[in-house]
Simulated assay, not measured.
Amino acid sequence: MKKLFFIVGLLGLSPIFAQKTNVDITPNNSWLKAGVTAGVPVGDASDVSSFNLGLDLRGQYLFNPNVAIGVASGYSHYFGKSDFEDFGLVPVAGFFRYYFKPSGLFLGTDLGYGFLTNVENNDGGLYVNPQIGYHNRDWNLYAFYQNTWAENDLDLQAVGVGVTYNIRFK
């Protein structure tokens, strides 16, 4: 079932990838996003962790003023409750964002694989991270729901907020 969601997600984005074949990378359409996140684990994760902090790193390309795709990674550190060790999540994902205006509301999601660190008998699983937020030329502020369907029926979820700064190519 997880593989089905992944394939449907990729097929849903295929018309976007097929629209433009001549790609010019400029400071106006491509940049890095670097920032931090903070969240509260929910679901299975709330049994073993009470808080998470993370780093967010993205490379973005704008097809037009409203549609962007890119790659996303980073690290989310889950602080273990008493009797549980800390653990982490390293996502490797593609992302899609829709910007309604040059400044203002955006919707987006990441889709990929989340690698778990410091978790025995579990390498990770399907990763999804929908977001809603505010953006301008330099900053992005957003709320997110992060879910990783990992091996051995582990459903790792968190809700939180993040902020990223746009680092423009020159």
Rank of each mutant, 00 (worst) to 15 (best):
R97A: 12
V163R: 02
V92F: 15
A72W: 04
P27W: 08
N166K: 10
G160M: 04
G9K: 00
I69M: 07
N147W: 11
Y127G: 06
K101F: 14
Y145R: 02
L13D: 06
F106W: 06
G43N: 10
G80V: 08
V163I: 14
L10C: 14
A143C: 06
I25C: 04
W139G: 03
G114Y: 10
F84R: 11
P91E: 10
V161R: 00
V48G: 08
G43V: 08
F79Y: 13
P130Q: 07
W149K: 14
N118R: 12
F144E: 03
F87I: 04
S50N: 13
W149Q: 15
G74F: 13
T117D: 00
L10S: 09
L111G: 10
H135I: 07
A143N: 03
K2R: 11
L13A: 09
I7V: 14
G35C: 09
N147Y: 12
A72S: 15
E120H: 04
P15M: 00
L57C: 08
N118T: 10
A143K: 07
Q19M: 13
W31K: 00
V92T: 10
Q19S: 14
S103L: 01
F5K: 03
F84Y: 15
G43I: 08
L55Y: 06
D83R: 13
D83P: 04
A72T: 15
L13G: 05
L53S: 10
L13R: 06
V163T: 11
D83V: 13
D110L: 03
F51R: 10
P102I: 01
K3Y: 12
D153H: 11
R168G: 02
Y99I: 07
D153S: 15
G160K: 02
V128T: 15
A93F: 09
P41I: 09
Q19I: 12
F87L: 03
L57Q: 06
L89H: 08
S76M: 09
D153I: 14
E85G: 15
Y113N: 05
P65R: 00
L10K: 02
Q146N: 15
S49Y: 04
G9W: 03
A72V: 06
Y98E: 03
F169M: 05
P130E: 08
D47E: 14
F51N: 07
K101P: 03
F79K: 13
V163D: 02
T21A: 05
D153R: 14
V71C: 01
D56K: 14
F5M: 13
D56R: 14
G70M: 07
L13Y: 09
G160E: 00
V23N: 00
L4E: 11
D110A: 04
F63S: 09
Y145T: 07
F169W: 09
N28I: 05
M1R: 12
N29T: 02
Y98L: 09
I132A: 13
Y75N: 10
G70S: 06
V23T: 13
V128R: 09
